[in-house]
Simulated scan of single mutants.
Amino acid sequence: MVAESNAPDVSIRAVARRHGQSASQLVTWRRLARGAPLAPRPAPAREPTHGGA
């Protein structure tokens, strides 16, 4: 699918739909195939700490 979607004048959405996948999933696979890092996930929210013991 990645190679197919790299052809000129080919719609990523159409290729993904033809194979039963979402366009966003195919975009992620294309990004991984070219070695680009995925966006980092944000750090989980920390519980506020209250001072004193």
Rank of each mutant, 00 (worst) to 15 (best):
S22N: 10
R30S: 14
G20T: 08
A36K: 10
P37E: 13
A23Q: 05
A23W: 03
L26P: 05
Q25M: 13
R18K: 13
G51R: 11
I12G: 04
P48A: 01
T28H: 07
W29Y: 11
G51L: 10
A7Y: 06
R31I: 12
R41W: 09
S11V: 02
H19A: 11
A53R: 06
L38D: 04
R31M: 15
A53L: 00
M1T: 06
R31D: 09
L26S: 07
L38G: 03
A53K: 00
V10Y: 05
T49P: 01
R41H: 11
S5I: 01
G20C: 12
S24F: 06
V27S: 11
H19L: 11
V10A: 08
A53V: 06
L32Q: 13
T28S: 08
A45G: 14
H19D: 01
Q21C: 13
R31V: 08
G20Y: 14
R30D: 06
V2H: 02
R31K: 13
N6M: 13
R30F: 05
V15Q: 03
A33K: 03
A14N: 14
Q25L: 15
P40F: 04
L26Q: 03
A36F: 02
A43C: 09
A33M: 09
P40Q: 13
P44G: 08
R30T: 08
P44A: 11
V27N: 07
A7C: 01
G20R: 10
G52E: 08
P44C: 06
T28P: 00
R18C: 04
V15F: 01
P44H: 02
R18W: 04
S5G: 09
I12M: 01
R46G: 12
D9P: 00
P42N: 07
E47K: 12
L26I: 09
Q21E: 15
L38R: 10
V2C: 09
R34Q: 14
S11W: 07
P42R: 12
G52C: 04
A3R: 08
H19W: 15
S5W: 05
Q21D: 11
A53N: 00
Q21S: 14
A16T: 04
A39F: 09
R30K: 14
T49A: 10
R17C: 06
A3C: 07
R17P: 03
T49M: 09
T49G: 10
R18T: 06
R17M: 10
L26M: 06
A43F: 00
S5Q: 02
T28D: 12
V15T: 13
R34N: 11
S24G: 05
V10T: 14
P8R: 03
N6H: 00
R18E: 15
T28F: 03
W29T: 03
R30Y: 03
G20K: 10
R34G: 07
P8V: 03
P8W: 00
V2W: 01
R41E: 14
P40E: 15
D9W: 08
R18G: 05
R30C: 15
A23T: 07
P48Y: 01
S11C: 11
D9H: 09
S11F: 06
D9M: 10
V15E: 00
R17Y: 00
A3V: 08
P40W: 10
V27K: 09
R13T: 15
P40Y: 11
P8E: 04
A53C: 00
D9V: 05
D9A: 04
I12R: 02
Q21K: 14
P44R: 05
L26V: 12
V27L: 02
G35A: 01
P42I: 00
